[in-house]
Design a protein around this nucleic acid. Sequence first.
DNA 1: GCGACAG
DNA 2: ATCTTGTCGC
Length: 236
Amino acid sequence: MQIQFPESWPTTPAEAIALQQTLAPQIVLEDRIPNPIRYVAGVDAGFEDEGETTRAAVVVLSFPDLTPVDEVLVRQPTVFPYVPGLLSFREVPAVLAALAQLKTEPDVILCDGQGIAHPRRLGIASHLGLLCDRPTVGVAKSRLVGTHIEVPPDKGTWVPLTDRGDRIGAVLRNRANTKPLYISPGHYTTLETAIDLVLRCSTKYRLPETTRYADRLASSGTARSALEEVQQGRLF
DNA sequence: GCGACAG
DNA sequence: ATCTTGTCGC
């Protein structure tokens, strides 16, 4: 898909925070997702060489059958350290490079991490949504900010995630007997639609299929060689 | 000043 | 995120 790469990228936390404050007001919390949805994408990032190299994986699944139809894996030098609240500045560059190589245009992208459930309302899903001008949803495995009551144990139930008086997302019990997921709108979507989409992308596991496929692709790129396995005496 | 803190 | 063995539970 066509990607407009940023001409410059923040180098320091101070610059990154300033950019977030500029971009946050541009987020659109209205549904602008194509109907019907034909393709959903999942993105994930991983690291090698003690963080020196970033891996970004993106997988496109047909919807609603969730069959993988396109995928890309890229590796490039890491350009920003991990700082809570500034995750996008570390992972987005590689993710954009991966998206640029997709042949199939996704109608919506599910990201590993928060959307607007962020201190400055610009988590990685929101930031990515603005940069590629696409609907995005944040699917995080844990909380960054906000408070919430306990989530009922029943599968499919959720409670609002609140921060400074704002409803910034939902804590969703995607499966019974598992930790809940933190869902929040990224860009061009409402919380209700985000929750519905995550549920419709989920089958028998805690994480939606989109992120599971992306995780697997990202991991395949870091799998140990047979030689390394032998040297560690763990073959067979 | 003391915790909390997506991936 | 990554390192890293076995182990508890469905």
